Computed example of a mutant assay.
Amino acid sequence: MSLVATKIPEILLENVEMRYQTETADVLALHQVSLDIAKGEFVSLLGPSGCGKTTLLRLMADLLTPTAGNVTVAGKSAKEARLAQKYGIVFQSPVLYDWRKVKHNITLPLELMGVKKSVREDKALELLDLVGLQGFADKYPWQLSGGMQQRVAIARALSMEPEILLMDEPFSALDEFTRERLNEELLSVWSKVQSTIVFVTHSIPESIFLSDRVFVLSPHPGRLSAVVDIPLPRPRTAEMRNSPQFFELIARIRDSFEGV
């Protein structure tokens, strides 16, 4: 059963375009993208390299401003939502500070907000338990595996209890075994925090396993070529990856790509 709580859009994009000026040309990266994401929904932005997935995520996060169209988050502009701290962001690289202990990496946003040390410490332990890293609070990032570092990054993004978690290919640098395990752990975390999650990936199986819906982007310029509902029951299990329905969804998404 999906965790979608309501059909009222938490994130709404209307005819969004993004152009970049280069020395030699005016490049259209995204062309008239319109989509809506419900509160509590887990969606993936799927497509090949260069199709504008990360650009689209950055527009939602107010890290970029569209050259045309509108981005609305929780009824506010993307800028208003950012200033209201509705976002948590996890990038492809964990971006941890090697000289800070794991717990201090997690609580950095709280520290910058002036939250009391005792509250920060309690929050760090709570989040480490949530992402399965009990006992690692006093370790340093360089003492952890890549998968463990990415779990720390997820915990840090959750430290401000964001309504929306934006994830930009967070597992793409990991081996397939670690990646699949972290997919399962991410769903476990999501079931507890119930944030809206927008997940960027170029992996069709990953997008199917994680999502309620998959937004398929095609390149040159990036545009929305399909929206695919994922009817697999929740909680998702590793065995589902070998089911006929899973392979049917893979084929359906492959057939939906344009210009690839």
Score class of each variant (00 low, 15 high):
4 V>H: 05
6 T>N: 13
6 T>L: 09
7 K>D: 15
7 K>C: 10
12 L>K: 15
13 L>T: 02
18 M>A: 07
19 R>F: 14
20 Y>L: 13
22 T>E: 09
23 E>W: 12
24 T>S: 14
24 T>E: 15
24 T>C: 05
26 D>H: 09
27 V>D: 00
32 Q>G: 10
34 S>E: 04
40 G>A: 00
43 V>D: 09
46 L>E: 03
46 L>K: 02
46 L>C: 05
49 S>T: 03
51 C>G: 01
51 C>L: 01
52 G>Q: 01
59 L>S: 04
61 A>Y: 07
63 L>M: 04
63 L>S: 06
65 T>I: 15
65 T>E: 12
67 T>H: 00
69 G>H: 09
72 T>V: 14
77 S>Y: 02
79 K>W: 00
81 A>D: 00
83 L>V: 12
83 L>S: 15
90 V>P: 13
90 V>G: 11
91 F>S: 07
92 Q>M: 02
97 Y>Q: 11
97 Y>K: 06
98 D>R: 08
98 D>H: 10
101 K>C: 13
103 K>D: 12
104 H>G: 11
106 I>F: 06
107 T>E: 09
111 E>K: 14
111 E>R: 01
111 E>W: 09
112 L>R: 08
112 L>E: 12
118 S>E: 15
123 K>W: 08
123 K>N: 11
124 A>W: 05
124 A>K: 07
127 L>C: 02
129 D>G: 13
130 L>I: 01
130 L>A: 10
130 L>Q: 05
132 G>E: 06
132 G>A: 02
134 Q>G: 13
135 G>P: 06
139 K>Y: 15
141 P>H: 11
141 P>Y: 01
144 L>A: 09
145 S>M: 09
146 G>I: 07
148 M>L: 11
149 Q>Y: 14
153 A>F: 02
162 P>T: 04
164 I>V: 10
167 M>Q: 08
168 D>M: 00
168 D>R: 04
174 L>P: 01
176 E>I: 10
177 F>A: 12
180 E>A: 12
182 L>W: 04
184 E>F: 14
188 S>Q: 15
191 S>E: 12
195 S>Y: 08
196 T>Y: 02
196 T>W: 01
197 I>E: 01
198 V>M: 06
200 V>M: 05
200 V>P: 00
203 S>N: 10
206 E>P: 01
208 I>H: 07
208 I>N: 10
210 L>I: 07
210 L>V: 00
210 L>E: 04
211 S>V: 07
212 D>R: 03
214 V>C: 11
214 V>G: 08
216 V>N: 00
216 V>E: 00
216 V>C: 01
217 L>R: 05
217 L>F: 04
218 S>L: 06
222 G>R: 12
226 A>M: 10
227 V>K: 13
228 V>M: 03
231 P>E: 04
233 P>K: 08
234 R>I: 01
237 T>K: 13
242 N>D: 14
244 P>W: 01
244 P>H: 11
245 Q>L: 14
245 Q>T: 14
250 I>C: 15
252 R>F: 08
253 I>C: 06
256 S>Q: 12
